[in-house]
């Protein structure tokens, strides 16, 4: 388990993190969302020892991350960094060695990863000669070359074209399948929704929501049911016990059900009006959840 626990950080008078905490199980992918400046990068930098937390710690397998255990973490910083004039293959091997691989193992792993990421032919070129997308792949290879036990990636998808996004997503899913906990931050919420087992939304220095996308939906949206009946008797639903009509436009009704109300009885009532074209629990998109969570006042914050 990778645990972020009660992280606090202030830069001068600006309180950036006020108790950020979440956990990522081995083999699962965690999407880290939040508006710009919410503190995602600071959280990740604390995990990598680049920023010192005022309080709290990050643990891997129950032990706080330190200089030695961080070597088993693959990291991709938000501001990409590679030596521009160094050759691709040597560069990836160098990061392998810094993470503790022997020279021969590092060279071998570097070749393997570059081959896998489609850069085999470019391994002798200087990094600055590569396109931005390819540089991003080298960056990923540098993060993966030492077969890390944990992956922490800051905005790994930014600046990639759709095909690049797909191949990166595939590489990350491979890692998760191999049992590596993967944390990445992103503004591409559709991507997070598609890839991640669980999601955390950071706002105002706190996690305002954490859980699987499914859990968030239920928690954030309550029990909203959308029923479309093309030829309704007026306000057929209003009379049902335990049901509140949120909106009703020309037969397209959004109903909120009390906890004890049986949705099947609602369906039965709907069927009595005639045809039912649509009957489903409302699925808010992650974007909607995100807007709701980020906009919500502090008092309503949901504990992790």
């Amino acid at each position: 388990m990778l645990e972020f626990d009660g992280l606090h950080k202030s830069f001068g008078d600006v309180r950036v993190l006020e108790g950020v905490g979440f956990g990522v199980a081995p083999g699962s992918m965690f999407g880290f969302c939040g508006s710009n400046g919410a503190g995602k990068t600071t959280t990740m930098r604390i995990a990598m020892g680049l920023v010192r937390a005022d309080a709290g710690e990050v643990r891997w397998q129950g032990r706080p991350l330190d200089q030695a255990t961080r070597r088993r973490v693959g990291y991709m910083p938000e501001e990409r960094g590679l030596y521009p004039k160094m050759k691709v293959g040597e560069q990836v091997a160098y990061f392998g060695k810094l993470h503790g691989l022997g020279a021969a193992a590092a060279a071998k792993a570097s070749d393997e990863w570059l081959e896998r990421l489609g850069l085999g032919a470019r391994r002798g070129d200087a990094v600055e000669k590569l396109s931005l997308g390819n540089q991003q792949r080298v960056q990923l290879a540098a993060a993966l070359v030492s077969r890390p036990e944990v992956l922490i990636l800051d905005e790994p998808f930014s600046g990639l074209d759709p095909i690049g996004v797909d191949s990166l997503a595939e590489a990350l899913l491979d890692q998760a399948r191999a049992g590596v906990p993967v944390v990445f931050s992103s503004h591409q919420l559709d991507l997070v929704e598609r890839l991640c087992d669980s999601v955390g939304i950071l706002a105002r220095g706190r996690m305002v929501a954490t859980g699987t996308v499914e859990e968030l939906r239920r928690r954030e949206a309550g029990r909203l049911l959308r029923v479309v009946t093309p030829d309704p008797a007026s306000s057929w639903a209003g009379a049902l016990p335990g049901v509140r009509v949120v909106s009703d436009r020309a037969g397209d009704a959004l109903l909120e059900l009390d906890a004890g109300t049986d949705d099947q009885s609602v369906l039965a009532a709907a069927l009595r009006t005639g045809r039912v074209e649509h009957f489903a629990w409302q699925q808010p998109t992650l974007v909607e959840l995100f807007r709701g969570a980020v906009a919500a006042p502090a008092a309503e914050e949901v504990a992790a």
């Binding site: 990598m48 020892g49 680049l50 200089q67 973490v73 910083p77 501001e79 960094g81 030596y83 810094l98």
Partner: peptide, 17 residues
């Protein structure tokens, strides 16, 4: 300066002091 300008220093400092 090269390490700072190319931001590679962040990766380096994740592995060493």
């Amino acid at each position: 300066v090269e390490e700072k300008a190319s931001r590679v220093v962040e990766l380096l400092l994740a592995t060493m002091r």
